[in-house]
Design a protein around this nucleic acid. Structure first.
Lengths: 199, 199
DNA sequence: CCTCAGTTTGACGGACGCGTCAGTTAACGA
DNA sequence: TCGTTAACTGACGCGTCCGTCAAACTGAGG
């Protein structure tokens, strides 16, 4: 081997730059040149690692998701009380810090792009499934311990996740009536509704 | 006056075509020529009524919203029982028929476009406010009649609307796990949670 | 020192689409 | 019938950007 491969590192660098740009100016306005500049490289290099713009975006969406999930894994393992676990998980999705906001914005772009792209729909479905599995798992755990009301965990998980998606979107849009603080209240109310009164 | 103005009719025709195209191929891919063809006219005419593409899209988003609300107004006036009124309203947002699906898809495109456009954020905020006011009104009415649980109507309305947005989005994406039927169940569960047990 | 594969570069061809514009049509009043 | 003006048309100029490509570079092995 002539020299150690830099492929993995360079790909990450480009994908991160792509997510930055998508978050800032949107998929629609994104130019390969923007990504290259942000990554501190040239358009030629971007094309060396990703044949087409579509390839790049698909990879960026995937990367964005993997990162989001990796960031949350510790959260789920730290907390043993399902009530705390659920709250920590939901809290982690509030679009407060830059990293979370960026991830949400990229996510939103994926949604709309996926409306017209089967391949991305598949990706969204996988991710959504994973998310639902996690939340439903926490709910089931809480029910087993007699902490949550006895309702279909999958149904409740879907409702909760849908709500978080919808609220986050409005918060991201800078709605005057849906601030992050308001979003937190709405989520807290929903979670409290799921809990059984303390014994 | 040389002849009767056809402006109003022609504008509608173009806006409807624009929404069709946005729904089908997305804002990103939309070409003025697509809209012109769909409207059965020429690109010149489109530009005659809308100076720029941005103007056209802004007007189309506004038109889409106005139509959506107009279609629902009768619903709210027909039903006197707040429980029925709430259900009818929520039901009307299930992405079942073509008209509703189209409206949702255009709506989703607006969201993402608005992430990078102050003007559209303003529009979204107005619409979201109107929607929240309607739902909160129904909830308050139901509470006054002792039909709904006594919780902050605005908070509950926000949660419900957010949930509908999030669920509809997944349904539109053709998620295997979030069909319209599933969405209906999740909404029904959420509504039932708001109601007090029958006396 | 030379070779060679992996990597990088940026200029360029070609396609594409917005917005302009000069010219045409049609309805109305005079 | 003619002048006037709103309404309409579609070709084209111009700028933009993707993806290609030929050439350059880099570092490890021979």
């Amino acid at each position: 081997m002539p020299r150690p491969s830099v492929e993995a590192a360079r790909r990450e660098q480009i994908l991160s730059a792509a997510c930055d740009v998508v978050s800032e100016i949107g998929f629609k306005s994104l130019r390969i040149a923007d990504v290259a500049r942000r990554a501190g490289t040239s358009t030629g290099t971007v094309h060396y690692y990703f044949d087409t713009k579509a390839d790049l975006m698909r990879a960026a969406f995937e990367w964005n998701f993997t990162r989001s999930l990796d960031r949350r894994r510790p959260l789920l393992e730290e907390q043993s009380d399902p009530r705390r676990r659920l709250r920590a998980f939901v809290e982690s999705y509030l679009p407060i810090d830059d990293v979370t906001v960026r991830a949400w914005r990229v996510w939103a772009e994926l949604w709309v792009e996926a409306l017209h792209d089967r391949d991305l729909q598949e990706l969204n479905d996988q991710v959504y499934g994973e998310w639902r599995r996690i939340v439903a798992g926490v709910l089931r755990d809480g029910q087993d311990r007699g902490l949550f009301r006895d309702e279909d965990p999958v149904l409740v998980a879907n409702g909760l996740i849908g709500m978080i998606d919808g609220l986050a979107l409005q918060a991201l849009l800078g709605s005057r009536s849906m601030t992050v603080e308001r979003m937190r209240e709405v989520c807290e109310r929903a979670i409290r509704d799921l809990e059984l009164a303390a014994v």
